[in-house]
Structures are given as C-alpha cells and as structure tokens.
C-alpha cells in the first residue's frame, strides 16, 4: 500500500494514528517510518508534527531509521534470559558483525532486542520479521542466518 492508500483507508479520526503508522511501516521494505511519512500523517490527522513524533518514538515496534530486510528480534525477557538468551545474542552479534540496534552493511539484517514475545515455552526465542524461532542454539542460529541470507539473494 502506498502512504496515500493507507491514509484513505483509515479516515481522519485521530485514534487511528497507531494503525496508520503500522501500515505505512509495514509497506516500507526497509521497515521504518520516514520524516515525510510522519509529516503526512500529522497533516492528515490534523495533529501537531511533534505529537506524531512523540507517539512514534514511544512504541518499540516503530523505527525512524531504515532497517534491514529481516529484523531479528531476540527476546531478552527473564524466561529467555534464564534459558540462555545472552549466548544467543552474543552469537548473533558475532555472526552478523553488528551491534544491537544496528543493520548489516548489506542491509539484510537488523539486530534488535525485544521484551517477551509470548513464546516462552520454546525459550530462548527470537522473531525474524513475523516468524518465530524457538529453542535456539548456536548451531540453529548459524543455520537460520545462512538460510535467510540465501533467501534474500
């Protein structure tokens, strides 16, 4: 969907702000909101620009920076932590060569941390875009990253 299509879909009621931002971000291949996006949304809903900025930066699912094709979100909540999430994070940092919140040079992966994603039964877990991966081990990580890298080519 283009931004205009999203805006038209929702109408002008201010409580739609979050859903509009969701949809616009989802239609961006780099999974983020541009300055232009926030500006146009503010105009459409007749909200102050700063207000839209305040809302967009409150929620962790929104990003104002371009991200990779795949957003890897590793759960760092207590259950996953107990089951070894820190090792998973170290493993990912190593194999991707980026820090938390950063995107790989080839723009394929962005590494993020997340609070509980509700799949603690298979901790440690992570999400790649909307897909869940659980019972993670170092070997599994390598395998998943390889696979995704191949898919993106």
């Amino acid at each position: 969907m283009t931004r205009e299509e999203v805006l038209n879909k929702y109408g002008k009621s201010k409580d739609n702000l979050l859903y509009i931002l969701h949809d616009i971000q989802d239609s961006n291949p780099r999974h983020y909101l541009t300055e232009e996006d926030l500006k146009e949304v503010a105009k459409w809903l007749e909200l102050p620009y700063s207000y839209v900025h305040g809302v967009a930066t409150f929620y962790s699912m929104f990003s104002l920076k371009p991200r990779g094709k795949y957003i890897i979100r590793v759960c760092e909540s207590p259950t996953c932590h107990l089951m070894g999430a820190s090792n998973i994070i170290i493993e990912l940092v190593k194999s991707l060569g980026v820090g938390i919140g950063e995107t790989t040079k080839d723009e394929i992966f962005t590494l993020e941390l997340t609070s509980c994603i509700g799949v603690c039964g298979v901790a440690p877990a992570m999400m790649i875009n909307s897909e869940v991966y659980g019972n993670l081990t170092s070997e599994k990580i390598a395998q998943i990253i390889d696979e995704k890298r191949r898919e993106s080519k």
Partner: peptide, 8 residues
Amino acid sequence: IKKGAGAY
C-alpha cells in the same frame, strides 16, 4: 480490534 505497537 485495535493493535498495540510494542509497549508493556
């Protein structure tokens, strides 16, 4: 249905 955006 309304959808959150990541905030406990």
